[in-house]
Write a protein that binds this DNA or RNA. Sequence first.
DNA 1: TATTGTTATACTCTATAACTATA
DNA 2: TATAGTTATAGAGTATAACAATA
Lengths: 173, 173
Amino acid sequence: MNDCLFQLISLSWLLTSLMESRKQQPTGAAFLLAQLGAHAADRFGERIKRLRLAPRHAGILRIIAKIPSCNQRTLAKRLGVLPSRMVILIDELVGKGLVERKRSTTDRRHSVLILTRRGRAMLEKLSKLAAEHEADLCAGLTAEERNTLAALGRKIVHQQGLTPDVHPGYRKL
Amino acid sequence: MNDCLFQLISLSWLLTSLMESRKQQPTGAAFLLAQLGAHAADRFGERIKRLRLAPRHAGILRIIAKIPSCNQRTLAKRLGVLPSRMVILIDELVGKGLVERKRSTTDRRHSVLILTRRGRAMLEKLSKLAAEHEADLCAGLTAEERNTLAALGRKIVHQQGLTPDVHPGYRKL
DNA sequence: TATTGTTATACTCTATAACTATA
DNA sequence: TATAGTTATAGAGTATAACAATA
């Protein structure tokens, strides 16, 4: 078990403890979010193992597909990963034949990252698995409940200053 | 940034992508849960830094306080940590003067773990910070919305087979 | 001089196996 | 022999600094 999940579990325990010790209503929204977040990440990781892909690769493929003529520096900044780590991650994707580095002709310092045909096919498979993941995770909720949950979640995201497209909150770890 | 948070972010990106590409309603409940879970763990970690305590220590203190005459093996099993790792974690807490090992008189193989007075005081401080954490995280919601969110969260937890007191889902990482 | 990609390196966390002391 | 705790060690993931090529 990695440290982050352990952290989430610790958090869960502590918040449960808090609820008990203060005799409050057992809302525990923070606890539930931490627990479910860890669970969601865990299950997603398990799900994409069949593609022989680690979770960290998934987001990279997505961004390369979205940003045209994306270079490693841009990608690293976007994900909050160090450039030195980015090299290794891209190496792994290149090794799998999903991504190619192409030296920019205008500025030969840049490596333009492009998806191979296999990379695009992989992204399509990932998309299907993500849909399954979403469906499975929310299988216990009606469509209306799902919308309510999402609306409340977005409310917290907004109030906490989190923006889905940028994730600035995770950068300063 | 550690790999787990990166994983959560990757998941976020992917699910966002999915929503866009399939022109679905942007519910993205799984995305939101992963994002908020990572955010909650992050913020909690930041919050307890002032106590010079790492998040991984918090849950351990909690369990030692809850389970009487708890030994390391039990603790390790409960948290899903390897016994060898548990030794180091307990060493850290002993070094901070929060926990003491006491050889069991009935079976001298066991180390009974007990909180020191400083350990109990630390747990009380942690409890206060956890309360602040919960309040801050849900600051954007009314009391009723908080209850709704928690109810929906519990519904997922139940349907997914997660039990807050055991966390069996995280064990097999 | 500044920037992109890269390598080298150290540090932490995780995982496995082997050791000790008890039973 | 079996179990609790411990040690040693190898492997990942993360962070920092330094380097070569290019601008």
